[in-house]
Structure formats: C-alpha cells, structure tokens
Design a protein around this nucleic acid. Sequence first.
DNA 1: CCGGATCCTAATGGATACTG
DNA 2: CAGTATCCATTAGGATCCGG
Lengths: 106, 106
Amino acid sequence: MDLSQMCPKYESAVEILGKKWTGLIVRVLLGGPKRFKEIKEQIPDMSDRILTERMKELENNQLLKRHVYPETPVLIEYELTEKGRDLEPVIAAIQDWGEKWMSTDV
Amino acid sequence: MDLSQMCPKYESAVEILGKKWTGLIVRVLLGGPKRFKEIKEQIPDMSDRILTERMKELENNQLLKRHVYPETPVLIEYELTEKGRDLEPVIAAIQDWGEKWMSTDV
DNA sequence: CCGGATCCTAATGGATACTG
DNA sequence: CAGTATCCATTAGGATCCGG
C-alpha cells in the first residue's frame, strides 16, 4: 500500500514533463526536426539558457537526438526519438484537460 | 507562431500536475473519498507539511472538496470533484508512458 | 486526528552579457 | 547560429515542533 514505492515510473515521468517549457518544446518537435533558433521563435518567452538546459535534459533522457551537420555555418537539428514522439498522446491528454478545465485568465 | 501564448492552459495544467506527489494523491483519491491519514498511509514518503500544501493547492484549484463532519473527534474527508476525477485519463497516459519508457533503476 | 508554524536547503528559472 | 557564463530572485520541499 505504498504508492510512492509502487509508482516510481510515474514520478520519474512527471519529473521530466513537469519542468517548465518541456511540453511546449516537445510539441514544437512533434512537427519535425527543428533547429535551436526555430524552437526559440515558437517559444519566445523562454530564455536561451533554459532552452539549452531543457534540450540537454531531453537528450540525456533520450527523448531527442541532436544531429550535427558540419557545414559552414554548422547546422544543428533536434529530432524526437520514438520515446519522445510517444509523448504525443500524453501531451494531448494534458492539453485536453487544460482546455476543458483551466480558466483563461492566468 | 508563439506557442507559449497559444497554450497557456497547457502550462497551467502542468503547473498543477508537475508538482511532486500531486499525481499520486489524485490517484489515491480516485479510489474514493479519503481522510488525511489514509492518504499518508499510502504515500508514507511524503511529509505532513507537503501533503497539507498539496491538499490546499488541489482545493484552491477545485480538484477536490474538503468535507468536515463535526463529530468527536472531527472527521475530515477529501473527495475529488469532477475536474479532479477527469484527471484519470491524463494520469493513466503518463503512467503508461512511464511504464513503457522509464527504467526501473531510480 | 488534522493539520499549522517555523526554519532551512536545494532546485528552478529569469536576465544579461559574452563566445567559437 | 548555437550556445556559455554569471548573477540573482523565487519556489519547492524536507525536518521538526506546536496546537485545537
């Protein structure tokens, strides 16, 4: 009868998803591979530092892959892994709930 | 093209769900109305202070109702509202994703 | 039984300036 | 372009003791 012991994976998942901007970043990447700048443009309120931090976390957690194309200037793209793309229904569920229940005045 | 402006409800929802223990508390309450002590027993790693804090947040966000029965000693029960019960599919989605992708060694 | 009050530490995240 | 580095304010959350 110890839920915290029984559901460590739930809390682990929340640790990733619960961080600010993470869901939005994944959303952007669900639209296909994107560059740092493209993500920034779609989420302008997020600072460079935070975006960098989130990208590293997402890469460490294998939610995305970082591709480096050694052109000039260098081209770097971020692409969701299967694990990352698999978040789509989760994000959709949160989104639906938010749309249904959260008031707009925030 | 500004996701942070377009999806305020998503982030608002995450602000609630993203906090530690919140999902587990809702899970416990999905099993029916519970008392403070009953919740504690199912999530022993959580401190009293945090549980109190979460319960207030959940009440303020109308995810649960607090019922006070003036017996001796006083009996207090917490019950999910429709808004709270509606989190079930969201929590299930997170849980499924966690089960599928998170490693056990945490 | 159901918390409240207080204290303290670590984590989070925003702003800004700078770099290969 | 794609980040680093630094600084700082806020928040999260654990421990402990107190009270109706």
